[in-house]
Amino acid sequence: MVTTRLPVLRDPPVDHDDVGTWVASLGGPTWIVLSGDDARRCRVVTTLLHGNEPSGVMALHRWLATQPRPRTRLAVLVANVGAALTPPHFTHRSVPGERDLNRCFRPPHAGVSGVLAAAIAEDIQAWAPECVIDMHNTSGNGPSFAVATVRDPFLERLAGQFCDRLIVTDFRLGSLMELPLVVPALAPCPMLTLECGGALQPAAREVAGTVFRRLAEWSDLTALEPHPDLDVLVHPLRVELRPGASIAYAREPQPGVDVTLWARIDEHNRGLTLPDTFLGWLGEEGLACLQACDARGQDHLHELLCERQGRLYPRCPMRLFMATTNVEIARSDCLFYSVPL
């Protein structure tokens, strides 16, 4: 019997038709564990690290109603229940006033979110999983993609089962997928973040459902076939506001605002973004209110973006992803990531 710090429900029935009511019935962060034909092996999925990214837990709720029987034990974490249930439900990334849970997986594990992150890390060690997939929604609309901290053939094959793009990032932000770099016991465990698409996109729920079904059906993960056209992008740049800069999203420039991004900038999360693509308007400070740093903290803004007559454009062809239209996320996290081509 695996001993965990967080509560465990084993092979639970689905007693509530409404996913919000079901999440509330858990009472807090909970492992949902399905017995497998081979109880010696385990696979782990984490969901709802951000309370406003519910596609994973919605797909889980729907899938559990089918009473699945996986090939191996499957442990699924429903993590940030408090944030998810803060009214209005499924709209808060974190509990107001608390740290972002997915920035707390490196010590020191301060505050409520840090304590929870430490418990999750210990529990994942206890499960000794064959793999971990951490499911999220993108902060803007867009296609699904995966993120890994290392370029690895197995992670490429695993990512290719669910999406067409893998980002290999060297940013270290304290996310769950960084645990193998932090916890020596987890170093052999493949961990992948899967961004399923926008929280309101039905397709995102379908992607999440595919994760549960396939992890339950696969007998041998080492036998996965590679995705022949997987797009692998490495070393993204993180485009952020400089301290004190202001931002808005609109269809026209907003007076007194340093950066007004185009209201539907998240449309550029798909495909190639070319130098003639209009991204938004700049205020009196121009580009000085932005930075585009790599993982070492070096700013590549002027290699990536340029100003033309007060408007913001790419300087070169690029792949743009995680572009948000949420002002709070833009202020507290970043505007978007980009890989110049």
Rank of each mutant, 00 (worst) to 15 (best):
G27P: 13
T91H: 07
A295C: 13
L320P: 03
I167A: 04
R213Q: 13
W218I: 14
R62Y: 02
V23C: 00
R213G: 02
G198D: 08
G114H: 08
A223H: 15
R10L: 12
T324V: 07
F321I: 05
L221H: 03
Y313V: 06
I265M: 09
R251T: 14
L230K: 03
C131H: 09
I329V: 11
V183P: 02
H16G: 01
I124F: 05
S246N: 07
R99W: 00
D229S: 13
G140M: 00
H61M: 05
E328P: 01
T260A: 01
V182S: 09
E267Y: 00
T193G: 12
G140V: 06
D11L: 07
D15H: 14
D333W: 06
G97K: 03
E285R: 15
L166P: 07
R10A: 11
R10G: 04
G140S: 04
R270A: 12
D17E: 14
V207C: 06
A245P: 11
P317S: 13
V132E: 06
G56M: 08
G28M: 05
R43E: 07
R62P: 02
G310R: 06
D299I: 10
G36I: 09
V211F: 08
F105S: 01
M58Y: 02
F336P: 03
H300P: 05
W63D: 04
Y249M: 04
L74R: 07
L64K: 08
A204L: 12
V112E: 15
G82A: 14
L26P: 10
S113R: 02
V78E: 02
V45S: 04
H89D: 14
D100R: 13
L186Y: 03
V232I: 15
L155C: 07
P143K: 05
A203G: 06
P54T: 09
A110K: 06
R270S: 10
A223P: 09
A121E: 10
V115N: 04
I329M: 00
R172L: 04
H300Q: 11
V2I: 15
E225K: 11
N102Q: 05
R99E: 08
L312K: 11
E225S: 13
T30W: 05
H300A: 08
R308Q: 15
S246F: 09
C131K: 12
P153T: 12
H92L: 04
T91L: 05
R5P: 00
G56W: 07
D299E: 07
V44Q: 11
E130F: 04
D11A: 08
C196N: 09
I329Q: 01
E156T: 12
P255C: 01
R205N: 01
Q298H: 14
G297A: 01
D11N: 15
R99D: 10
A75W: 13
S35E: 14
P317I: 04
L77M: 01
N326R: 14
T86L: 00
G197T: 08
S338F: 00
P129L: 06
A121T: 14
R238H: 13
P129V: 10
L290P: 05
D333H: 13
T86R: 06
Q125C: 11
V234D: 14
Q309A: 13
L186F: 07
P12R: 02
R93G: 00
C189H: 01
T86F: 02
L221F: 01
N326G: 03
